[in-house]
């Protein structure tokens, strides 16, 4: 049977993608951030997952306000990125796993999560930046991927509690897939940041560090916040914490922390990295 071997959280800021393409790994601004990642890659090399489920939010590349699904799941044989408005170069396509995608889709709808399925889906920096951080050498990358896009663009956003439950339902879906696959779940985005309004630049280190701790040991505590609470405490875009909660919900075994790193600021954001192992 398939099983979820662990989860990873990471920021997905576009500026990280630019810094990777300019190879700013030793730059004094970027070094404290990039230095967190080798340990995460070592863990992935040890575990060798077959599939990565990547929970992210589309930032206006694939979805417009004409049709805005709350939860959308990729079911494509491959996923490509595209220019997001500032002349990004296309990356090699990411291989999908349609069989597992459809199994998850079927299982979720049976489990009363009426998600949107996508046989074509452009993935933006929310997906590609974490993939580039985890698997920088595309020539050696064997992992397949399944994007899970969550609406954080237009309120109402799904509640933290609902997102945690979606994660649990994804966890049940993976556990019932009959092939022996190792699955890792990436919860992307966050932590605190706000891009818009007079409150732009809001960062809440204390709240971020509390989230880094609770997401490991007591995720239910974080599900008691409302979206409005998250906007107030973590900034307008800090509501991306719901993506971490989906990741955490998928892990129902004994969860332990392998590695963590937290750094302020990357762009306008408190950047949190966690590697969590899910023991049976």
């Amino acid at each position: 049977m398939a099983r979820i071997v662990g989860g990873i959280t990471t920021s997905h800021i576009p500026a990280i993608g630019n810094a990777i393409s300019r190879e700013l790994f030793e730059d004094p601004y970027w070094k404290p951030f990039f230095d967190g990642y080798p340990r995460a890659r070592e863990w992935l090399d040890e575990v060798k997952p077959d599939v990565a489920i990547v929970v992210y939010n589309d930032h206006g590349l694939n979805f417009f306000l004409d049709k805005m699904p709350t939860f959308a799941i990729g079911a494509a044989p491959q996923y490509t990125n595209d220019d997001e408005g500032w002349g990004l170069q296309p990356l090699p396509p990411y291989q999908g796993d349609p069989e597992l995608s459809w199994h998850i889709i079927n299982s979720l709808v049976a489990d009363e999560f009426d998600i949107c399925s996508c046989q074509e889906m452009l993935v933006d920096h929310g997906f590609t930046v974490p993939m580039s951080l985890m698997w920088p050498d595309r020539s050696k990358m064997a992992v397949k991927s399944i994007p899970v896009a969550v609406n954080t663009v237009q309120h109402p956003l799904p509640t933290p509690a609902r997102c945690f439950k979606l994660g649990q339902a994804i966890g049940r879906a993976v556990a019932s897939f009959p092939k022996d696959l190792k699955v890792v779940v990436l919860g992307t985005g966050g932590l605190s940041h706000q891009l818009d309004g007079q409150r732009a630049g809001f960062i809440n280190k204390e709240f971020d560090l509390m989230c880094m701790e609770k997401i490991v040991s007591d995720p239910e505590a974080l599900t008691r916040y409302s979206i409005h609470d998250l906007v107030r405490l973590a900034g307008a875009q800090g509501a991306e914490l719901i993506l971490w909660l989906i990741m955490r919900g998928t892990m129902t075994g004994t969860v332990s922390k392998v590695h963590s790193n937290y750094h302020i600021p990357i762009s306008n954001t408190g950047a949190g990295l966690l590697v969590l192992e899910n023991a049976v």
Partner: peptide, 14 residues
């Protein structure tokens, strides 16, 4: 949800 307390300097895009 009922009307929520405004967050200064923040527009909720609803």
């Amino acid at each position: 949800a009922k009307t929520l307390e405004p967050i200064p300097g923040t527009i909720i895009f609803d």
